[in-house]
């Protein structure tokens, strides 16, 4: 913590306490640094778009598996969960190949049905979106597993009672299933947000933060500054990210508690 208030750099590694105290300069510099602002904005977009979509996909899959089918439930559960356990570095590598503009399999399939595929990770307008889609693919299975346990725990008598009162499927989902899912939903919301706020491997492997910094994340920029030897500055940025994580988590707890 103290480090982020100093001008510590690589040469100070032997004597970490013999550095100059510079107060909030690192923090002020980070907030004024256009590249850090860009990285913070990218991170915000990644979280605001990615987190709800990941949870929605997980919730839809969980409900479909619990209510819609009777056979092969375990099989689908296993399949949807597989991406979650794999190394982000490895799957990001695979996705980079899949998304290659001219010979990547995704654009070739789009081309086969007459769509000119975009230059996904090479175009600054679509690069971040591509990373978000890949993250949803990798993480929705985690939300699904936790929410599925929640859905299965909902007492069936409640559903029957609601049905007797004339509630349709959709109403029962809104008024019986969703309220019962609040604790696991909160858990998924908080953990997914914390993870996405620190996203790092995806841009590191797929884009190196480019093109034109359009996929640079706060963590990635922090790492880069650390790599340049600006440790105090990197530490300040890490604490700014931590502060945001803390605030977002507290807000999420507050907002979901108020409904009680």
């Amino acid at each position: 913590m103290y480090m982020s208030f100093t001008d510590m750099s690589r040469k100070d590694v032997q004597s970490p306490f013999a550095v100059n105290f510079i107060g909030f300069d690192n923090y002020a510099r980070a907030l004024g640094d256009p590249t850090f602002r860009k990285a913070a904005l990218n991170t915000a977009i990644f979280v605001v778009v990615g987190v709800p979509l990941t949870i929605l996909a997980g919730l839809a899959a969980a409900v479909a598996l619990d209510k819609g089918i009777t056979k092969a439930r375990g099989f689908f559960r296993l399949g949807f969960y597989t991406p979650v356990i794999t190394s982000i570095v490895a799957v990001a590598e695979v996705w980079r190949v899949l998304l290659q503009p001219d010979f990547g399999i995704i654009n070739q399939m789009l081309g086969a049905v007459g769509i000119q595929g975009p230059n996904c990770v090479g175009d600054e307008n679509t690069a971040l979106l591509s990373l978000i889609i890949m993250s949803i693919w990798r993480n929705f299975g985690n939300a699904m597993i936790i929410l599925l346990a929640g859905v299965q725990g909902v007492s069936w008598e409640l559903h029957e009672a609601a049905a007797l009162d004339g509630a349709g499927t959709w109403q029962r989902f809104l008024n019986v299933t969703l309220p019962a899912l609040r604790p696991p939903l909160l858990f998924v919301l908080v953990t997914t947000s914390i993870g996405y706020l620190q996203f790092f491997e995806e841009p590191f492997v797929m884009t190196q933060g480019g093109p034109l910094n359009s996929t640079l994340s706060a963590s990635m920029y922090t790492y880069q500054q650390f790599g340049f030897g600006k440790w105090g500055y990197a530490g300040a940025m890490a604490y700014l990210t931590f502060l945001v994580i803390l605030i977002v988590t507290v807000i999420q707890f507050r907002v979901t508690r108020e409904k009680d």
Binding site: F76, T82, L98
Partner: peptide, 18 residues
């Protein structure tokens, strides 16, 4: 729903097959 889930599963697995 089986069809839908199977198609989804195929897409989830596609990167691994590839």
């Amino acid at each position: 729903l089986y069809v839908l889930l199977s198609v989804l599963l195929l897409f989830v697995m596609l990167p691994f097959f590839w």
